[in-house]
Amino acid sequence: MKIYVGIDDTDNIDQGATGISAKHIIKMIENQRWGSCQGLTRHQLLLHPAIAYTSHNSSMCFTADIEAAYLEPLIEEAGRFLERYSAPGSDPGLCVVIEEQLQDAADLIAYGYETKKRIITKEEAFRLARKLGVHLSEHGGTGIGVIGALAGVGLRMTNNDGRFQGRLKLKAPGAIINVAEILSSSPVEKVQSLDGYILHGQEEVRLGNKLKTVLLEGKRILLVYRRAGGLEWETCTTVHLEHY
């Protein structure tokens, strides 16, 4: 069965990163042979002085295909991991959603979008989790990471939010490569311009320094752009990707 795993708030100002915590949990699932995990995405939530985020208020989510029998051990071990290895003073939260058992994804998606617009309380997050019958648990500190953990899953379910964790490794910066080679040698599913044009296999792209992908229409997309007056496609910079 397909599950979504959301985690948030595992760092403090000096140490830890929620992306790294999520990668450890993915490794744990795969080492235990509980199932296979797919792309880890980062989702931006509201930036507001009244919210107790460390520095950027983002949460992480990945999906996994697992046998039903491994669900409980996975939840237990992931929670234990967050309790043991999250940074001191952090407030970790864990959310696990079984896709086939979720009756109303629209509510969860709406909640995800709400966390980008207004301050949400921990009680609201737990109330929605109870209503939807999804797993939501806190693992230290104030536990306010549950807000973002639930939001990470909701935003991932939109299929149109967030950047994938990590950078692509293709060729050296400045190299020119065609789309077919990008698709065959990386997890990228489409190469697309910022205004939505999908490049075909023989079109060429100049690689930039940092190759990041985003989640659009449920696909892992490498975004490209043309400089003003230019004819050459180039991979987008981190500045272009700020709002993804």
């Binding site: 930036l47 950027h56 990590g166 940092k210």
Partner: peptide, 21 residues
């Protein structure tokens, strides 16, 4: 952390762990 870098110049306040957006 790499996922939180926004500036092309690596050494930038925008990429520093001690900036709070």
């Amino acid at each position: 952390d790499e996922d939180e870098l926004v500036a092309e110049e690596e050494r930038s306040c925008y990429n520093c762990r001690f900036r709070r957006w």
